[in-house]
Amino acid sequence: MEIIFAIAIGVLYAVSVYLLLRRSIVKLILGIMFLSNATNLLLFTSGGLSKGKPAFIEKGSNVPEPGIADPLPQALILTAIVIGFGIIAFTLVLTYKYYSKTGTEDLDKVQETDQFE
């Protein structure tokens, strides 16, 4: 099971790096989204996978059953997803603003602030 997840994470990272290196800002954002998902999946997998045992304590008992899923990575992922979501929304609006101001979304033209005067 872990091996499938490992391959999936690898593929997601590869896709994200490929997209991050493209010239279009929209593809850059897509790359960031893939990066965020790959990282969340990595976090999930490294916490250990357990099939069919959600992180709940049965009614009437005080101790969890042995071998239930670790709830902490899930909480971490939820936090990471929320943060990622906020930032992606921000980045999309930023790109839209930039596009409406300059009429381009070519990253090679985003170099005004780096120019030597």
Partner: peptide, 29 residues
């Protein structure tokens, strides 16, 4: 200029954040 600077700054910051989370994931595992 602010929007341009922001695009560069945000991209780099996000990449660093995700590397940070990946590190956390590995160390937790």
């Amino acid at each position: 200029a602010q929007l341009e600077g922001a695009i560069k700054y945000i991209t780099m910051s996000l990449i660093s954040s995700f590397l940070f989370v990946a590190g956390i994931g590995l160390i937790y595992g």
